[in-house]
């Protein structure tokens, strides 16, 4: 019985990565979308500029999906042998956590930076590049979490436990 729990934990990890990073991105893109709509109401020509800023908090959701997909492939849910030990299942679960938590939090914080950037573009359209850099800085931490999760997932596959 305990042995079969491995797959349960591994799948829970994959679901958590997709779930939390997805929620973060949905909140973030929504918030930035409100700001973008505010600017476009007054100046429709800024649509292209604000759209790019609106999309920035959306990447975390994609990273979450990637981690979930990789985990599902590794644990055999999408084909192959789905029989993994409890220890491995827990390790997969832990490997997904960085992406899940950092994904949620960084998307929300990036949205705030994106909203500020959209407001900056509203006042000074020539500062588009700088406003993107401010929001993109937050992306660093989402990418670091993605890296740790990817390296862990691949590393676990080679472990003999």
């Amino acid at each position: 019985m305990m042995e079969s729990l491995g797959i349960v934990f591994a799948l829970a990890g994959a679901a958590l990565a997709a779930l939390m990073a997805g929620i973060g991105s949905a909140i973030g893109v929504g918030m930035a979308g409100e700001a973008a709509a505010g600017v476009v109401t007054e100046d429709p020509q800024k649509f292209g500029k604000v759209l790019i800023l609106q999309l920035l908090p959306g990447t975390q959701g994609i990273y979450g999906l990637l981690i979930a997909f990789m985990t599902l492939t590794q644990i055999g849910i999408l084909g192959g042998d789905a029989n993994i030990s409890l220890a491995k299942g827990l390790l997969y679960f832990a490997a997904c956590l960085p992406m899940a938590f950092v994904g949620l939090w960084s998307a929300k914080r990036q949205a705030r930076a994106a909203v500020s950037g959209i407001q900056l573009v509203a006042k000074r359209p020539d500062q588009m590049g700088k406003s993107m850099i401010f929001a993109a800085m937050v992306e660093t931490y989402a990418i670091l979490a993605l890296l740790v999760s990817i390296l862990s997932i691949f590393g676990i596959a080679g472990l003999n436990i």
């Binding site: 709509a37 505010g38 800024k46 909203v115 959209i118 006042k123």
Partner: peptide, 17 residues
């Protein structure tokens, strides 16, 4: 606080006026 995101952004677009 985020409730006014649309309003503040629209205000920012109006400020240059």
């Amino acid at each position: 606080a985020e409730q006014y995101t649309y309003a503040v952004s629209r205000i920012r677009a109006m400020e240059p006026e």
